[in-house]
């Protein structure tokens, strides 16, 4: 498969990354070289192969339902880009 400018625009939008026009051209070349490299996978027959998400066959541990975390607000707010009255501030969200 190959990626074109429109695909790049779409995935850049999904990933919320701004890409300038001059970047976009070189990006197309580089992404396509990566895509053609990973396309080597398509040569392999994987019928009846179970997909592997984890290295070892283990199951999810469960945590007791206890409150263990304390209020770290003062540290958290100190390093936040914009805060008013202990609330993080961002440009207006339009629903």
């Amino acid at each position: 498969m190959t990626i074109n400018q429109k695909d790049i625009e779409k995935i850049a939008h999904l990933a919320r990354i701004n890409i300038s026009e001059e970047e976009s051209a070189t990006l197309e070349v580089k992404l396509n070289s990566i895509i053609s490299m990973i396309d080597k996978m398509q040569e392999v027959n994987t019928d009846n192969v179970e997909p592997m998400s984890h290295a070892l066959e283990v199951t999810q541990p469960l945590r007791e339902d206890k409150v263990t975390e304390s209020d770290i607000r003062s540290d958290a707010l100190k390093i936040a880009p914009e805060v008013v009255d202990s609330i993080f501030i961002v440009p207006q969200v339009i629903e």
Binding site: M1, D7, A15, V49, P51, M52
Partner: peptide, 29 residues
């Protein structure tokens, strides 16, 4: 950024099976 874009691409609608799922199967092999 390049890797984020590749990653977004292989997970996006229509490509998941051909890339991500396929990769997980070969990972098993």
């Amino acid at each position: 950024k390049r890797r984020i874009l590749i990653g977004t691409y292989v997970l996006s609608a229509g490509y998941y099976d051909a890339y991500y799922l396929k990769a997980q199967k070969i990972r098993k092999l």
